[in-house]
Computed example of a mutant assay.
Amino acid sequence: MNKKRSALMLLVGLALAGCSAQQGGGASATATGTPAAAATQSAQLQKNALGDGLYEMALTPDGRALYVASAQGFKDVQGGAIYKLDPATLKVLGITHTDLKNFGVAMDPQGKTLYVTNSLDGGVSALDIASGKITGRLLFSERNEKGFPYGAREILWHDGQLFIGGVADPGVIWVVDAKTLKLKKRINNAGKWVTGLHYSAQTQRLYAANGGGEILVINPRSYAIEQRWQPLGEKPALLLNLAEDKQGGRLFVTDNSKAKTTLVLDIRSGKLIKQLDNGDSLAVKYNPQRQELYLTQRESGKLLILDAHSYATKRSVSLPPHPNSLLLSADGQTLYVTVKQAFNKDGSTQGPDSIVRVPLNQ
């Protein structure tokens, strides 16, 4: 694998997935209780070994289609794909093959356009839902000291704009017009490696996590960074993904490599409410309907289901080798998980990545 591809894969691995030599098999469920109970839970899971390079997911507003971004392979494979699945069966309904590799996703509220980040090329593409075609693209001009594009990692749709985090040092947040895909603004000095993005309707602020252990509080109208929180102080932290408890005013933040924890913050003050001792945490989702918190753990290969009040683990689901991204259905009763395989030294993977459907009301 050439040096450019190695460096870019490291960038994406750092921000989106991570890599490990650990091998694993298919999806299974393990929970506290008897082996029979674990076997019953395993039978309730649905799994589709879809293909290489699966990352983030999005549901259409009507819940009839599930989209999965795929980078495809990193060895001798050009381009990527976007899969359209039946959310109930995980059956493939359609595939859009793309010339660039796809990672992060965001759906517009009308369900007409899916936006995907092309991390290795430092850009964003728009997929027309009706036709399944790529209808627009913007490639950002920034390059690092080695000449590589800044990695376009997480993407968020808000008020007709796309906020896209740039993985660089220092990082940047690009603000893009969602209709025209024209660059409107650069939010600079966003710290080392902008990773997670979240908008809170309660505070009307954008929150950005970075690899320097910071949470940036940003005014989405003026684009000003109003506050910079460092919840763990000077301790090393690589903060990743964010989720919000709107009624409780809590912001959940994960770290799967440095502090290896989940932080619970007051969303208005940034005060650290609780630091969860569950180990490495990658993706995070909060479920207000069930009062539950969901975490993926790449090292242990588990999905954790926590009581959102006591933070006690209600259920642990084994999804080896590396559960990655999470998506929650609108009714809060179904969770979708992408499960990644490990990379070989030559950049190939040890098997196809999978998507798993986890029913929460059984």
Rank of each mutant, 00 (worst) to 15 (best):
T117A: 04
L16Q: 15
L45K: 00
G63E: 09
S131E: 11
D346F: 11
G122Y: 08
K260Y: 04
A106F: 00
G132A: 10
A312R: 11
N210L: 01
N118V: 15
L304C: 10
V176C: 08
A312D: 12
I129K: 06
L216N: 03
L156E: 00
D266M: 07
S42D: 10
L263R: 05
A17S: 13
A130I: 00
G301Y: 00
G79E: 06
P109L: 02
G80M: 01
T203K: 07
T261A: 04
E214R: 08
K146I: 10
D277M: 02
Y223Q: 13
L242A: 04
R290I: 04
N2Q: 07
A36C: 09
G80C: 01
G301V: 00
N344T: 11
S281R: 02
A31R: 15
N48P: 02
G63Y: 07
A17G: 12
P321K: 11
Q23A: 14
S141R: 13
G166I: 02
K285M: 11
V253I: 09
R64N: 15
A88R: 13
A65I: 10
G33L: 12
V317M: 03
G249F: 03
I173R: 00
G123T: 05
S141Q: 12
Q41S: 12
N361F: 13
P109R: 06
Q333V: 06
Q23M: 10
P61E: 12
T40R: 12
T261E: 01
K182D: 11
L206P: 05
K314L: 15
Q110L: 15
P320E: 10
Q161K: 15
P231N: 11
T334A: 09
D266L: 07
P109H: 08
T32W: 09
A208C: 09
W157K: 07
N102I: 05
G24K: 00
V217I: 10
A36T: 13
Q230D: 06
P35T: 10
A308N: 01
G347H: 06
N189H: 13
L360Y: 01
Y311R: 03
A69W: 06
G165Q: 02
A201Y: 11
L263D: 01
T262I: 04
F163D: 05
G111Y: 02
A152I: 04
R5K: 15
E56T: 08
D99Q: 15
T98R: 05
P35K: 11
V172T: 11
A106Q: 00
E244A: 12
L45D: 02
L50A: 03
A31G: 14
G73P: 03
P61K: 09
F74Q: 08
V124Q: 09
S354I: 03
T40V: 14
K260D: 06
L360A: 05
Q41P: 03
I95L: 07
G332Q: 03
W193C: 05
H322Q: 14
P320K: 09
